[in-house]
Design a protein around this nucleic acid. Sequence first.
DNA 1: ATGCCGGGCGAAGCCCGA
Length: 259
Amino acid sequence: MKISTWNVNSVRVRMPHVKDFIEKQSPDVLLLQELKAQDKDIPATELEDLGYNLIFKGQKAYNGVAILSKYPISDIITNLYNVGDDEQARYIECWINAKNSGFRVASIYLPNGNPINTDKFSYKLEWMTKLRNHVEKLLQNEEMVILGGDFNICPEDRDAANPESMRNDALFQPESRAKFREIINLGYYDAWRSLHSEKTNWSYWDYGRAFEQNKGLRIDHFLLSPSAVDKLNSIEIDTYHRSLEKPSDHAPVIIKLNI
DNA sequence: ATGCCGGGCGAAGCCCGA
């Protein structure tokens, strides 16, 4: 089972890259973030024609998340808040009816939170509390749970090429990291760290010269429930699709599970 | 280094990202 997450920074602009990625990697499940399109402007038929069932939550200009699956989809959730409370399209979750064993998967676009000392940072922390409370409930069912997406958190200093330049960044604040650890401490495993205790790698590079200088951040994560991490076989970051012309500023992250 | 990128919106310049 191959599952990938990718912040595409506009699904309409990135469609050629998304198609190329699917042709080359053919993931069973693909989680997308930052669609930057309202529902009616999302190229749904085009994506479905690539061989996927599709669910999404769009929003005008900002955010937007989707799940593509080769297997049937059910039990969809599109909001961590009460209905009508959160208009930002940052969360979508479903059950994947895979052949032998199903699993739950979420596509997450966690708020950036910059600049700190503003309501944007407060919103980030509030949103993370909502996420924590929700994913805690998911563990109670003892299902395989796979949380993937752009978490906008560097879990540790070694998850940035230049930690000192990040000290005042919302992605690096002790409060942000503490909230992230709260989720880990519920019993979720950072897939990258589960397989690579020392090795560092980036999933995001700022536009400009950051990619050629390989100065990036590791902020796109897979968090796996105990029964899911038991099946984890590999994780890789697809830098090829960051190297193309007109790329997203994020690279796809790909995990393989023995299911 | 904070927006010098890049994208959306809407038709110029501002909001947002990390």
